[in-house]
Design a protein around this nucleic acid. Structure first.
Lengths: 110, 110
DNA sequence: CCGTATGTTCGCTGATTGGCGAACACTCGA
DNA sequence: TCGAGTGTTCGCCAATCAGCGAACATACGG
């Protein structure tokens, strides 16, 4: 497993972040990470093909929202880049996640 | 001038809001309204064609971010739907606008 | 009534998006 | 060594997006 490229915190674009979160499947990924950080790609309970999911993870990673690191075996652990996001865009992630939590049904258990 | 359709506050979608704001020209419109609310379409200092601008206003309006009302003459006054947005998505608009203000140069005077 | 000014709508275009399956890369266990 | 499991990459496709000019609608002023 090759390590993937992650943008530096100071290079994050607010437009890339908003675009990444303006999509239900990607928002679901983020919500899952908020409730339990550090999950492998296959454990998000999203009914999409592997390739589509992989593309969504890539969008989130390139927007600087998540980190994808090589884990035991051939899996990747996905984590939120929360400190860096909060430092650069204070309150942003919280208000967005709160907005979706309160305007959409809770996610079913995995 | 026909009045335009505006979605009800309780029907606003977080995805529509994020998508609307994930575009620089539309973000500029919102920033202008934050600094001075109630401006006609032609006064935003954005270098795009009339038709493109009109389309951007439409996206913002249909996302529930702005209100476009018939004004004196044939112009439309654009205002932020701030109270409704804040009621439905608390803190969202503020944190997004703050994020872009602090990560991008200030807008030039009109 | 006729020009000017403000916006909207209607094609059209090229670029991006989100979806998929197939193929590939890699690691772990049997 | 050989599956099985996990993820990425590569085409491909249909849909959406952002841009434009031209044409239309409407209102004000001379």
């Amino acid at each position: 497993m090759k390590p993937l490229h992650h943008p530096r915190a100071e290079d994050l674009s607010i437009y890339a972040v908003l675009h990444a979160l303006a999509e239900p499947a990607r928002m679901t990924i983020v919500r899952r990470l908020v409730e339990a950080d550090g999950k492998p790609c296959g454990t998000f309970g999203i009914n999409l093909s592997k390739s589509t999911l992989s593309a969504h993870f890539k969008v989130l990673r390139e927007a600087g929202i998540i980190r994808q690191e090589v884990a035991a075996g051939n899996s990747r652990v996905n984590t939120l880049r929360r400190e860096e996001l909060d430092a650069r865009f204070p309150g942003l992630l919280d208000s967005i996640v709160h907005a979706v939590e309160q305007s959409e049904p809770a996610l079913p258990p995995v």
